[in-house]
Simulated scan of single mutants.
Amino acid sequence: MDAPQDRRFPLSAGILFGLGLGGFFDGIVLHQILQWHHMVSSWYPIDSMANLELNTLWDGIFHSTTYVFVVLGLFILWRAAHRGHLFWSSKLLAGSLLIGWGLFNTVEGLIDHEILGVHHVNEPMPRDQWIYWDLGFLLWGAAMLAVGWLLVRAGRAEQAARILA
């Protein structure tokens, strides 16, 4: 019989998936589709071919990193799925995904937007409005962290009840 800790949902897998999905959303929607910013577009504005090439390179490095997060999450989830009698929880999966995505938004928003200033959420807007978009991005991340944490708490309670049953 498996020990109770071996039957728990792997939160780290969901967090890594959330980090990766948050990065993919940012890169695909904000960088490519809407073209609001690129990875280092505040430092190197898209006003020359050389700057576009540099930003595209850093966007690719960024996407590669988010891809690694998803692969690591998949590896952890795959390993856990091979355990006997694993208790799956939709709340734990959704909560850990939201925690990962919220961590991505919060950390990336604080470091890249506010501390380093390598880019801002919506650079086509007038410069004096960038802070509002950046703050919205941070609030969105904080909201995902809070909802994710609540879902993980609820999922852990359900999981504990199922393990004891």
Results as ranks from 00 to 15, higher is better:
I111N: 03
R83K: 13
M144V: 02
Y132Q: 01
T56Y: 00
V121M: 15
N55K: 00
N122T: 07
E123M: 14
Y67W: 14
W140G: 05
W88P: 08
T66E: 09
D112M: 08
T106W: 03
L145T: 04
T66L: 06
H82V: 00
I99K: 07
L103W: 14
A50D: 11
M144H: 13
L74E: 04
L77H: 08
L92R: 08
G136M: 07
L110G: 05
F69N: 02
A143D: 03
L72E: 07
G84H: 12
W88Q: 14
P124K: 05
L92P: 02
G136S: 06
N51M: 06
F62C: 03
V70Q: 09
I99R: 04
G100C: 03
T56G: 00
S96V: 08
G95R: 02
G117H: 02
L77M: 14
A142K: 02
M144N: 09
E53D: 09
Q129K: 13
K91A: 12
G136F: 08
V71A: 10
M49V: 14
E53M: 02
F75A: 11
R79M: 08
V107A: 10
E123H: 06
L92Y: 01
V107Y: 06
A142P: 02
G73L: 04
L139T: 08
V121L: 13
V70G: 09
F69Q: 01
H120R: 09
V121T: 10
L77R: 12
R79V: 13
V71D: 08
I111L: 10
H85L: 13
D134V: 10
L72P: 01
W133M: 12
N122M: 11
F69W: 14
V68D: 01
P124Y: 08
N55Q: 01
D59F: 04
A143Q: 00
T65N: 12
L52Q: 05
